[in-house]
Design a protein around this nucleic acid. Sequence first.
DNA 1: ATTTGATCATGT
DNA 2: ACATGATCAAAT
Length: 225
Amino acid sequence: MRPIVAPPTDASELMQRCRGLAGRTIAEVAEQGRVPVPANLKRHKGFVGNLLERVLGATAASRAEPDFPHLGIEMKTLPVTAQGRVLQSTYVCTAPLDGSMAPTWEASWVCHKLSQVLWMPVVGGPEVPVAERVVGSALLWTPSAEERADLQRDWELLAEIIARGEHGNLDARHGEWLQIRPKGSSSLDLVWALSEEGEWVRDQARGFYLRPRFTRRVLSANYLI
DNA sequence: ATTTGATCATGT
DNA sequence: ACATGATCAAAT
């Protein structure tokens, strides 16, 4: 999906565009973007995210950069119920098992990716046709001291497991706010990993995700839900 | 082949 | 209801 507008010159212009989208349905937004809307997201999981990027003027997706590189802002959609409850986890970045992970939290991809995020709530779960889901009020967020501390604690726990080569028993149950789960085309999607003995082995590709309880807390703290 | 965008589907 | 593990498409 190519962008249909120029990138916003600054954060306030970006937020102004967001205010223009709030309360509108996905069908209305898609009409502006001249994009057909799928009935459901089973085979179009990234549709809403790509659509909003496009109408907000984010640079092309699938690049290893923030969505608004000149502003240092990453945009993420957040599926929520009508009551504002977050429905899904949020993918952050890949979790390298090959020894290339940053040595400290401050240097990590997770820390950098989450330094400034534009959360775009979208109201409506799988029971609501995509076209009828509604764009919510955007939130330009920088993690609080408490949120940073919680994320850092989990990241260090998870990084330690990987650093020891113990990815074999690394699953989604680790981490209170941040977790690691499979990320790929299928469970057969393997990457190179360093074992406990320092040998190269193949293991399932994984990524860092924010648990819904984390993003739920972010919305609660900012919208008084 | 990889990174981006995520949600689906199943089990507890 | 919710968490975990599995999966889908587009862009580069």
